[in-house]
Write a protein that binds this DNA or RNA. Structure first.
Length: 670
DNA sequence: TCGAAAGACTTTTTT
DNA sequence: AGTCTTTCGA
């Protein structure tokens, strides 16, 4: 397929920094992959000196695959295509000595982080989930902004800031003692290292001679800094982004990094991609008009040559059950009429909790569906147990893993024993594992408790010896055998069938681990430590692994839908309070919600359906939401409100529409 | 020590 | 309404 002039320009411009403003569906992935091929085939770049960075593993995988097709295995060898976090992990793994980190570090996931913070704050703060959450996001913000504990403490103004900064300090110390890193460390550590250490910086700048960044509007401060440090003064890079699709500011993303780029690199070449190859003209018109309600730094107007297309259908339903049923009936009717597949339809919603009713409706109608973002493989108890064991094997100082499995299966190590051990470890500021061997412990802990604990830790020592000295696969196998995990599952599961399922999951994990340890033609063999970090990262990055090309209706949040496309899209819960979400209205941040709606609309290729309810149950209480303001911002000529049924209700709906517009005016006048 | 039952709390979005 | 947590009784 031929490239359009904009795409061509974006691909060919390689002499300096390049920003590609790529509207939804404008073929940005193709630009990136073609550009990489161009660099290798025509510009004498070696694949091993090119890095492409994305935000999700899925995107990285897709990109890798596409490049493999264009370039061929040989030419693509050594090409770095990864997420920001994996890139960070790779840098850390190579530079761990300079960073002062032990090689076999553990990656803490959210749960581990929460557990640690709870423990740290139990004396200072009373147990408060919300406060822990605030603290967590505060620490995350510090790291995203590259603020270290001393600076954080110095900067603190309010008592609360000070408290948080001190927790941050102690959190970092403990992470060090546990030999653990968290998610944000994967970016912050390499960034600070590159900033402070010229030798390392030179080495990486020499390694990565051309850098490409996808979804650039989602980068946060530390990620942008990492980009700047990696490209150096040579400034050979291409970033691709779309400020209209910036929907992650709550997570630290800085869409202003787009305009900062112009300041930081005055020679920046800006290319706009405005031709959309995905949607009908009508869908794009709606999207354009909606997003015009937001202020813009870079103006952009998408157009399409795919024809005008069908009107956008809007359905008002009685309540949320009815909404789900209506989606199903419309979907079935539409599928029957147009002879499409289930996989051509996506149902998009604002919050995960909304999925339930749609699931129910789909299930009762025996429609196959797939939810992205639900409970992941790794959040199953049996998998968390096994992961904890693997983590312990690699890094016995990992207290969270220790606590999770010390008594699973039962080892007669109860809370009292653990409390004593914990107190002792705390006092000496060492890990639980280390504490178990100390003579001093015998002062507080005696008899059976001590024996059980030492039995456990000695067993761990033996296994990790075996892992290091002999074969990792054998060690893992022996470990699973030693703990009789299968028996434990049968004992504790509600039914034999459930136990069987769980054991199947465990075997699946075991298979993954052994495969990764052995390596194959695509991936090199890894140490167990690498496998464990990789799996934890995978757990965090992709909640839905199995890429299933079977015929299923897709259910996901608006956020999760970014980057995807479907012939027909249902946007549900188009109500004030949901989209835009109430908290965004309260915080006066409706613009990001509008972008979210924009992302939803631009997912659709041919058909778009919007659903809203007149009544909705919230915390058991019935509320009567107003239609979303976004519905009134869309071009009304392109909407087709469902007014077929009883004329009485049609009138009601029309009135509702007027009321909504009146409300909108009221908001404007405010 | 476990299960049932009452009670509290929930709803943003996720790398 | 549904889910997770705590509490109470056996």
């Amino acid at each position: 397929m031929k490239m359009n002039p904009g795409q061509d320009e974006a691909v060919k411009y390689i002499s300096g920094p390049c920003l590609v403003l790529a509207g939804a569906g404008s073929g940005k992935t193709r630009v990136i992959t073609t550009k990489i091929a161009h660099l290798v085939q025509n510009c004498s770049y070696q694949a091993r000196n090119i890095a492409a960075v994305t935000f999700t593993n899925k995107a990285a995988r897709e990109m890798k695959e596409r490049i493999g097709q264009t370039l061929g295995k040989k030419e693509a060898k050594g090409l770095m295509v990864s997420t920001f976090h994996t890139l960070g992990l790779n840098i850390i793994r190579k530079e761990y000595k300079t960073l002062g980190i032990k090689q076999n570090f553990t990656l803490f996931d959210d749960q581990d982080q929460i557990a640690l913070l709870k423990e740290l704050t139990q004396d200072t703060l009373e147990e408060d989930k919300e406060l822990i959450d605030q603290l967590r996001s505060s620490i995350s913000n510090f790291k995203n902004e590259l603020v270290l504990p001393p600076q954080a403490i110095a900067r603190a103004q309010m008592p609360q800031d000070r408290l948080f900064a001190e927790c941050y300090d102690s959190y970092m110390r403990h992470m060090k003692a546990y030999n653990a890193l968290d998610f944000d460390d994967l970016i912050m550590m390499p960034t600070l290292l590159l900033r402070l250490n010229q030798e390392v910086r030179d080495r990486w700048q020499d390694k990565i001679r051309y850098l490409l960044v996808d979804e650039y509007q989602d980068t946060n401060t530390s990620q942008y800094e990492l980009v700047k440090l990696l490209v150096g003064s040579r400034a050979k890079f291409t970033v691709v982004g779309d400020d209209d699709q910036s929907i992650y500011s709550w997570r630290g993303a800085r869409p202003e990094n787009l305009s900062l780029l112009q300041k930081d690199f005055p020679g920046l070449k800006v290319v706009k991609l405005e031709q959309n190859y995905r949607s009908t003209q009508r869908i794009l018109k709606a999207a354009n008009i909606l997003i015009d309600n937001n202020p813009h730094e870079f103006g952009k107007r998408l157009f399409s040559e795919l024809g005008y297309g069908d009107p956008i259908k809007v359905f008002t339903t009685k309540n949320e059950e009815h909404e789900a049923e209506k989606v199903v009936s419309e979907l079935l009717a539409h599928k029957f009429m147009s002879r499409t597949d289930y996989k051509d339809y996506a149902i998009l919603y604002r919050g995960n909790h909304q999925s339930r009713l749609f699931e129910k409706a789909l299930m009762t109608n025996r429609i196959p569906y797939k939810i992205s973002g639900g409970t992941s493989f790794f959040s199953r108890a049996e998998i968390k147990d096994m992961m904890a064991y693997l983590r312990l094997l690699v890094n016995p100082d990992d207290d969270n893993a220790f606590l999770r499995v010390v008594n699973v299966p039962r080892r007669e190590i109860g809370p009292t024993t653990l409390e004593k051990l914990g107190n002792y470890a705390n006092m000496r500021n060492i890990s639980l594992f280390a504490a178990s061997f100390e003579m001093g412990l015998e002062q507080t802990l005696t008899g059976r408790g001590l024996q059980s604990i030492r039995g456990f830790t000695r067993w761990l020592v033996e296994l990790s010896d075996q892992e290091q000295r002999a074969d990792s696969i054998d060690a893992v196998r022996d470990m699973i055998r030693d703990i009789h995990y299968e028996d434990w599952l049968y004992e504790t599961s509600p039914s034999a069938k459930a136990a069987e399922m769980r054991m199947k999951n465990v075997s699946e994990l075991y298979r993954w681990v052994t495969e990764m340890l052995k390596g194959d033609d695509l991936d090199e063999e890894m140490t167990l430590a690498q496998v464990v970090t990789r799996l934890t990262l995978r757990d965090m990055l992709e909640r839905n692994e199995d890429e299933d090309d079977s015929d299923q209706v897709q259910l996901m949040t608006f956020h999760a839908s970014k980057g995807l496309e479907y012939p027909y899209v249902f946007m549900v819960g188009m109500e004030e309070g949901i989209l835009p979400h109430q908290s965004s209205i309260d915080e006066d941040n409706v613009e990001e919600e509008r972008r979210l709606a924009y992302v939803g609309i631009t997912r659709a290729q041919r058909g778009l359906f919007m659903m809203l309810c007149k009544e909705r149950r919230q915390f058991g209480e019935v509320i009567k939401p107003e239609p979303s303001r976004f519905l009134f911002e869309l071009p009304q000529d392109d909407l087709e409100w469902d007014l077929r049924k009883k004329p009485a209700s049609a009138q009601e709906k029309q009135q509702k529409g007027k009321k909504g517009v009146a409300n909108l005016r009221a908001l404007f006048n405010k």
